[in-house]
């Protein structure tokens, strides 16, 4: 298959050779998008965040569908969305319908996800869909974008869907579990993904080894990182997100940052930010300088104040794209 043109700012920036940064937004059980729009505007102000992921019912929870917030942040804040779409809740008919609706509204990036099972979410009795899996969704997207058809080959009229799409990969699949993970990504590469975005990594050696393995596919890779704005979040992540552990030292440092500055909010924030910057700044630098990654996906949800301290030394490449 020939390479698909870069339709999105994200893919154009990668193609232009920039080391890119993306952010993350999480529409929850809400009817008010003002905070999400505010966060998006903060991302724009950094001039270094090229696009924002909009999550689709993470952990299987029933949240606002990602389609509308993805559109709204593009319209009201001007940042490009990486629209996350899970195959958990929609069959191939609904996925197709949503994708062309998203294309009509000017969305340019899709991140394909299987989606955490409904049994993990807040509506556990739901029947999950999984009509097609994430790899088959990749095939569907290639048909929509490259052939202008649905899965069965029925044509779309009235225009061309100009989108890029990516898949996720899990750097925490280590040891004997790495090979199936890499082979699985390979199937998606075969279907025509434009980029790979990884889950969170905390161990620099593990991250670099994983990127090294993925590099064989010659597809841009964004490494996921997860700065934590409170010790509580870090603790939750460490205990409740299986397969990922937050380094003990980092946990400890976040804890004392909070403890030492009890009752003094600005000082507490400054101390927490310092811990994150001290951990993630060298991490990002190492990834940029000594791995084949094309950028970093920063899952700092509602933690925009960290962006400049963390990314301030990188070029303001993104402003030409907004």
């Amino acid at each position: 298959m020939g390479k698909r043109p870069a339709y999105s700012n994200l893919c154009k920036a990668i193609e232009a050779g920039h080391f890119v940064f993306t952010g993350e937004l999480e529409p929850k059980k809400i009817l008010d998008l003002s905070e999400i729009i505010e966060s998006s505007k903060e991302m724009i102000k950094t001039k270094r965040i090229i696009a924002a992921n909009v999550t689709d019912g993470p952990q299987g929870d029933a949240y606002m569908s990602s389609l509308i917030p993805s559109y709204i942040i593009q319209r009201d804040a001007g940042i490009e969305a990486v629209w996350q779409v899970a195959v958990r809740d929609r069959n191939r008919v609904a996925l197709f319908g949503d994708v062309i609706a998203g294309a009509y509204m000017g969305l340019k990036n899709i991140l394909v996800l299987t989606g955490d099972h409904t049994a993990l979410g807040d509506n556990k009795k739901a029947r999950p869909v999984y009509d097609i899996d994430s790899t088959q969704f990749c095939e569907l997207l290639s048909k929509i974008i490259d052939d202008g058809t649905d899965y069965e080959g029925n044509e779309i009229s009235g225009g061309k869907v100009e989108m890029n799409y990516g898949c996720v990969a899990n750097p925490n699949a280590v040891g004997e579990y790495m090979e199936p993970e890499i082979l699985k990504v390979g199937r998606k590469v075969e279907q025509g993904i434009d980029f790979i975005q990884t889950q969170t990594a905390f161990d620099i050696d593990v991250a670099k080894e994983f990127i090294n393995e993925l590099a064989r596919f010659n597809v841009p890779i964004l490494l996921g990182i997860f700065p934590m704005k409170s010790h509580g979040i870090a603790w939750y992540f460490d205990n409740y997100i299986p397969g990922v552990s937050v380094p003990k030292d980092l946990l400890k440092a976040l804890k004392s940052a909070e403890k030492d500055n009890k009752g003094n909010k600005p000082a507490k924030y400054a101390a927490l930010d310092k811990v994150n910057v001290e951990f993630f700044k060298p991490f990002i630098k190492e990834i940029k300088e000594n791995s084949k990654a094309s950028g970093v996906h920063c899952m700092a949800v509602e933690y925009e104040r960290l962006f400049i301290p963390l990314l301030g030394e990188y070029p303001e490449y993104a402003k030409g794209f907004y």
Binding site: T114, S134, T135, Y177, E181, R187, G243
Partner: peptide
């Protein structure tokens, strides 16, 4: 649990 044809998913640990 997800009836996948091209697994595993990201949920395996």
């Amino acid at each position: 649990a997800k009836h996948l044809n091209n697994g595993p998913c990201g949920g395996t640990v």
